[in-house]
Simulated assay, not measured.
Amino acid sequence: MSEDFYDILGVSRDADEDEIQQAYRKKAAEYHPDVSDDPDAEEKFKQAKKAKEVLTDEEKRQAYDQLGHERFEEAEKRGGFDQGPGGMGGQGPFGGMGGQGPFGGGAGGGQGFGSVEDIFEQFFGGAGGGRGGGSRRRQGSDLRTSLEIDLEEAYHGVEKQMTVERPTECDECGGEGHPADAEARTCPECDGRGQVRQVQQTPFGRVQQTGTCQRCAGDGEIYDETCSECRGEGIVREETTLSVEIPAGIQDGQTLRMEREGAPSPTQGPNGDLLIDVTIADHPEFEREGDDLHYHKGLSFPQVVFGDTVTIPTIDGEVELEIPAGTQSGEEFRLAGEGMPRLRRRGEGDLYVTAQVVTPESLTEEQQEALEAFAEAGGEEIEVDQSFLQKIKSSF
């Protein structure tokens, strides 16, 4: 698969955000690890997601187009770049005043960029880049909830409706946190930049860090009046009903991710994701172990002595099982393909049936006489196969 983000999604370099989102949804549906049989599905899914995240972020996309794939990836991996000695005329592409190598910057040396976001701001944002100069679109926070299903639903897969309480944009102020006619003034904390810089002295020298201004939340402006509905937060909590697709074969404790169904961004960026922890309720008949199921079948003494054909329930119906003559209590039989669907592979697990001889609690006079005759004919000594005894011991 090509490394170029545009090629990964199969869109042109002038594609708009809607085209990119639509292309990503197609790739996600094709390569999602829960549904794809492609051995490289997980990696392709991650590449498509990364491509979408970069190309739908205006500043990152501009940086990607200007730097190219390799430089962009290198910048993100490094996260920060130390500057070389001070002086005029930095070397290499984008060498600033006194900086060495790629992305060296800053007059007279000093510290390097704190993160890759600072690179974007330096080259493509700057003081005039949007309201407050330092404001960037950030993804909202992820939310987490839980959902319980039964074993039958995990076997077949199911669509569940669930109600989630999550923060959402305030309708009263449109997410701004203040009335439309509120008077704005420059934030005194960040002087309108939307960001504040702090310098700390460490054993390795002075370290400069850049962070979002907490007073104005990166806007660069504050207002003389706040919204009465959201109290200036721009966000209120509301209940939302979502349709959740549970894939067949899901395991107890696995987590589903619903993209963009989390908390909204405080900076007009994309929503976070909703994480759903799935638990599977205990079943009255079956015990699950991975993709396999276990079932205990009660059998009478005559059935195990003479053999019999018995009906065994499965999640998807019933099957017949031949019980051979002389079956011992605790013996296990395997029914191939009668277990749970495999989540990321084709086929199903197996159903293991354990024979359990049931001792009657009461007998008729005729039954008692027959058993007494059987005991007298066979004597009191009972020989037990050693391999069977080993099975019994291992079960404890």
Rank of each mutant, 00 (worst) to 15 (best):
E239N: 14
G253R: 14
E233H: 08
I246Q: 06
E245T: 13
R260D: 08
T241W: 08
R260T: 11
E245L: 04
G249A: 09
C230W: 07
A248Y: 11
G253H: 14
D252V: 04
T212K: 06
G220T: 07
I235A: 07
E221K: 13
C213G: 02
R215F: 01
G232M: 06
G220A: 03
S228W: 09
E238I: 06
L256P: 04
D219Y: 06
G253T: 15
S228L: 02
T226M: 02
G253L: 10
G234I: 10
Q268E: 05
T267C: 02
A217Q: 14
D252C: 05
I222T: 14
L242P: 01
C213S: 01
L256Q: 10
R260L: 04
T212W: 05
T241I: 11
R231C: 00
G232I: 12
E229Q: 10
R231I: 00
L256H: 08
I235G: 00
G262H: 08
G220V: 02
E259H: 14
E259W: 13
R257N: 04
T267G: 01
S265M: 08
R215H: 07
Y223R: 11
E238K: 15
D252Q: 10
G249K: 11
T255Y: 06
Q214D: 07
R231M: 03
M258V: 13
P247I: 15
T241P: 00
T212M: 03
G249D: 02
R215A: 06
T212P: 00
P247Y: 15
L242G: 01
R237Q: 04
E259S: 13
T241Y: 08
R260Y: 08
T255S: 10
